[in-house]
């Protein structure tokens, strides 16, 4: 019970201190919105093409909503030494990092449904498989958050967290099949695409929104969950090695 009070305390503090701040909300939503509108205008297709663009908008909202805030806040707390307070708390490192990432996961998941809600007013979403979309958005949020945590543990300065996040985010946007099908990528880049968690997340989103997934959804979920587990374990190992020296 006591450890869950600590878990809730960390989550509530992070949500209040970081995720509900207007700049974070705008960064998590505005950037994907602008990005996707750009593709929408460029394609010259009408409003009926919105379901085709929606997976990209959802995926980018999650990706930017999670990685941008978490990597910066953890680096900031580490730099200001307030993170030591958490490391001194009598809770396991696993639970501590789950608490620390839960805010970002929640934020990313909520972010995912803002474009969906907007699209619901503009186009027909009756074909959407919500039982696939909701767990998919959550799992993408988990994998993106753990990627953000991995980045936070890999850098020392706040500005490094921002630039290092882009090192992962931008190639992922282009290679995950959201805007260009993986099959149309140059053969040399295709294996790289399959090494990215968002490729599988994007495939599930496409499948759930328009039914046009390229891989079996079960396989997508398993691979995405595998990415989450590996990222979390590797990051825990890095924290143990780098922060508890």
């Amino acid at each position: 019970m006591k450890t869950w009070i600590a878990f809730w305390g960390i989550l509530a503090k992070d949500v209040r201190s970081y995720y509900l701040k207007p700049p974070n909300i705008s960064w998590g939503l505005l950037f994907p919105l602008v990005w996707t509108t750009m593709f929408f205008v460029r394609s010259g297709l009408g409003i009926d093409s919105l379901p085709d663009l929606l997976p990209g908008l959802v995926a980018l909202s999650i990706l930017f909503g999670t990685t941008s805030v978490l990597s910066v806040t953890v680096t900031f707390e580490k730099k200001g030494r307030s993170f030591e307070r958490l490391l001194l708390a009598p809770i396991s490192l696993q639970l501590l990092m789950l608490a620390k990432t839960s805010g970002a996961i929640l934020f990313g998941t909520v972010n995912a449904f803002v474009p969906v809600a907007v699209a619901a007013f503009l186009t027909d979403l009756s074909a959407v498989n919500w039982f696939v979309l909701i767990p998919a958005a959550t799992l993408i949020a988990v994998s993106s958050t753990f990627l953000g945590l991995f980045i936070a543990v890999s850098v020392k300065e706040v500005f490094e967290a921002q630039t290092f996040s882009n090192f992962f985010r931008f190639p992922m946007i282009f290679l995950c099949g959201l805007f260009f099908p993986v099959a149309s990528l140059p053969p040399l880049l295709r294996p790289l695409s399959y090494m990215l968690p968002l490729t599988y997340g994007a495939d599930i989103l496409r499948g759930s929104i328009s039914g046009r997934n390229t891989m079996p959804l079960g396989l997508d979920f398993v691979v995405l969950a595998g990415f989450c587990a590996v990222l979390f374990l590797v990051t825990l190992g890095n924290i143990n090695r780098k922060w508890i020296t």
């Binding site: 009070i5 600590a6 305390g9 960390i10 503090k13 030494r81 030591e84 307070r85 009598p90």
Partner: peptide
């Protein structure tokens, strides 16, 4: 154990009261 580090390392964005409440929650206090 309680620890007071060589530099004050509480959360700058929280009030004094909220900082103490947060630290108490880390030890499972209701």
């Amino acid at each position: 154990i309680g620890v007071v580090p060589d530099e004050s390392n509480l959360y700058p964005e929280l009030s004094g009261f909220d900082n103490l409440c947060f630290c108490a929650s880390l030890y499972g206090m209701r």
